[in-house]
Design a binder for these strands. Structure first.
Length: 650
RNA sequence: GCGCCAGUAGCUCAGCAGGAUAGAGCACUUCCCUCCUAAGGAAGGGGCCGGGGGUUCGAAUCCCUUCUGGCGCACCA
């Protein structure tokens, strides 16, 4: 653990630890640190931090909680926790801690000065590798806002994990051999549809996909063509398979364009066709046959199939048929089977590897790699200690099957380190559904599911365009002195921030009811609000005389004994950052960081309104400039972790 | 039928390893730019935290039950 941050991160832990020790000494009671509650009290007269521990223990100790509180207080007063200035007791049994803000601020300034853009990081994941798979859009049509939620959450998880010190490898899985791509091939090859000039290929396919699916219903024999195409794709080495590969490739490039635009980057594209070609499953099958957990059914509903028996596991015991078929009676593998082999590869326990090649350079300067049928051998991909699959909650059952099958097949450790990051889908509000031409009956439903097949959904590109357009208008209004080029650049940053924040701020297990009015909003609890706080701080700092700015050093600026309440709030929020970042990363909860960042920005807005910086007396001004420097760094680090640009002007 | 998730202000949502008066944002009403950018701030109205039981000194938070909504339970991907 690193010096300064460690010390700092310990603010609450320190108090917990001292309480724990006092409890042990006075009452001979041993509790774990986590069992000792420490919270922020609702009222400043109860201090800066507070513990209801005596209330909790009143029963077990059979004593008046107030008496317990006073005994603990007496001990703590003799050996004060770091940063605690005074310790009081209030009814019915709280111990309150008033912080020494001079010492606290010193600690904060030191940490920020030393760590800079790394301030907030707690390196608990050092030496471990995590593979995060996200985005995974069917390469047969334009990306929609549901895919955006996936990518934004996945990318934020990657950023969080990096901040914990993990080696992070982001993979984007491309199902280029499935029915979805086949439908497009049916449209292009058999129905001879063509993409008109000037229409982006992914948008064209969005409509084509809907049309083909509609035709399947009107003209069932056409469905035969789909089967034929799927067969040809699997065979490979023919015109149709080449067309499918070309379609998928073009669409993937569209998907990458929009994701890159939003600041989402990857390390590796993994293609389903390569998994098939290399026979990942067949290879795994040969190994697993002898294991005994993969059984061949002689009779019953699954006669002739190879299955994994999951019925003796708690999670599956109530199911009608808890066994999972991996190999059908006709000898072909199910999707789950391929997924098991693929998951084994991610952990480096398959014993077989892909071939690789460069896909290209990403706008952030990193190389995106791809699996290929005939590339190079490389050691660097996969071989993870932990695997996170970012997939919506509708696939929870399948992800459970995957994990427990791994467990049953002898990969206990890998099963334990397989994490399904499940999040709820994005649906449409009645207003937005109506706007898209969906028939909305008055007072019937408030939420409308998106549907790729029916072409109901908001394309990611459409959302980005509308957001950029709106932001451009706002920017132009405020900055007539800027060039159109500058307007566009700034509007782009604001749009990215708005969209990413919108996609991340909601609890992951609640459905986002997408509404254009709300998504395009730039006031209140939105991305631009957070960015505006950053711009305002940067703006003040930009007005400080360069000589003055030059000589202010966070490590030795003098800190006033008396602070305003706005200053104290701001300091406390900034001091919380490492603990909150760590919590969000360890619980895999981007919304925790989003909420913190909003509160940090909001605390700054209060400071901004109430506390003059440039008009303050020189010694105070220096301190407040230092405060702004620390704030700009802290908010900047938070925004960066959320993948949001931090503009210096807005 | 079984399982998972959600139900908190008019709307969208925080809070849920129990703690002091339930918080934001939007919308609405009223203020604040001779003062570092008003994408901001201040004030106000608005709540049987779905219903009913229980555990506890204390429940939006834990347990049981019930209602409502969403999703899932293939030899589909």
């Amino acid at each position: 653990m690193e010096g300064h941050t460690y010390h700092f991160y310990q603010l609450e832990r320190e108090i917990q630890e001292r309480l724990r020790e006092a409890l042990k000494r006075e009452f001979a009671l041993a509790l774990d640190q986590e069992e000792i509650p420490v919270e922020v009290p609702p009222n400043p007269e109860f201090g800066d931090l507070s513990s209801p521990l005596p209330l909790k223990l009143a029963k077990t100790l059979r004593q008046n909680p107030l008496a317990i509180a006073e005994k603990l207080q007496a001990i703590l007063l003799k050996e004060r926790p770091a940063y605690a200035k005074t310790i009081t007791v209030t009814a019915p049994g709280y111990i309150n801690f008033f912080l020494d803000f001079v010492a606290l601020t010193r600690g904060l300034f030191d940490a920020v000065a030393v760590e800079k853009e790394k301030y907030g990081e707690v390196k608990v994941g050092k030496g471990k590798k995590v593979v995060i798979e996200h985005t995974n859009i069917n390469p047969n049509k334009a990306a929609h806002i549901g895919h955006l939620r996936n990518a934004c959450l996945g990318d934020t998880l990657a950023r969080l994990k990096r901040r914990l010190g993990y080696e992070v490898e982001v993979q984007n899985y491309i199902d280029d051999t499935g029915a979805a791509v086949a439908d497009i091939v049916v449209g292009l090859y058999h129905l001879e549809r063509e993409c008109p000039r000037g229409v982006p290929f992914d948008s064209f396919c969005w409509d084509l996909y809907t049309q083909v699916n509609q035709l399947y219903e009107e003209n069932p024999p056409l469905k035969e063509k789909q089967r034929e195409v799927l067969h040809q794709i699997e065979e490979g080495d023919n015109e149709v398979a080449q067309l499918a590969k070309k379609v998928a490739g073009k669409i993937v490039d569209h998907h990458l364009d929009i994701m890159w635009r939003l600041g989402v980057y990857y390390n590796l594209l993994t293609w389903e066709s390569d998994i098939l070609k290399l026979g990942f499953w067949e290879y795994a099958f040969e190994q697993l046959k002898g294991e005994g957990s993969l059984v061949y059914e002689e009779e019953g509903p699954n006669a002739g199939c190879w299955v994994v028996k999951l019925g003796d596991l708690e999670e599956f015991k109530d199911l009608e048929n808890p066994d999972k078929v991996l190999v059908r009676s006709n000898g072909t593998a199910t999707y789950t089977a391929k997924d098991i082999a693929y998951q084994m590869w991610k952990f480096g326990v398959l014993g077989k590897d892909f071939f690789y090649d460069r896909h290209g350079l990403q706008p952030n300067g990193t190389v995106l790699w791809t699996t290929t049928p005939d590339g190079n051998k490389m050691e660097r991909f996969g071989r993870a200690d932990e695997v996170i699959n970012v997939i919506d909650l509708r696939q929870k059952y399948l992800q459970d099957v995957l994990r427990f099958s791994l467990y049953k097949l002898g990969f206990e450790k890998e099963a334990a380190n397989s994490i399904h990051f499940g999040y709820e889908v994005v649906a449409l509000s009645a207003n937005t559904a109506r706007e898209l031409g969906v028939e909305v009956k008055e007072g019937e439903k408030e939420v409308y599911a998106m549907s790729g097949r029916q072409g109901i959904g908001v394309k990611a590109g459409v959302l980005v365009e509308r957001m950029v357009k709106k932001a451009t208008v706002e920017v132009a209004k405020r900055h007539p002195e800027m060039s159109p080029e500058e307007h566009r650049k700034l509007a782009q940053d604001i749009a990215i921030g708005a969209i990413r924040y919108y996609m991340i701020k909601y609890n992951i297990n609640s459905v986002i009811v997408f509404d254009f009015n709300e998504a395009l909003n730039m006031q209140g609890n939105t991305g631009p609000y957070l960015q505006y706080a950053y711009a305002r701080a940067a703006n003040i700092l930009g007005k400080v005389e360069p000589e003055i700015l030059e000589e202010i050093d966070l490590r030795d600026v003098s800190i006033p004994a008396e602070l305003t309440s706005e200053e104290r709030e701001l300091i406390r929020r900034m001091a919380e950052f490492p603990a909150t970042l760590g919590k969000a990363a360890q619980l895999l909860q981007p919304p925790i960081l989003a909420e913190y960042t909003f509160n940090l920005a909001s605390t700054f807005m209060n400071f901004y309104e109430a506390v003059p910086v440039l008009n303050a007396e020189p010694p105070l001004m220096r301190f407040r400039i230092a405060l702004l420097l620390a704030f700009r760094q802290t908010l900047g680090n938070a925004l960066n972790t959320l993948g949001m640009p931090a503009p210096a002007r807005m």
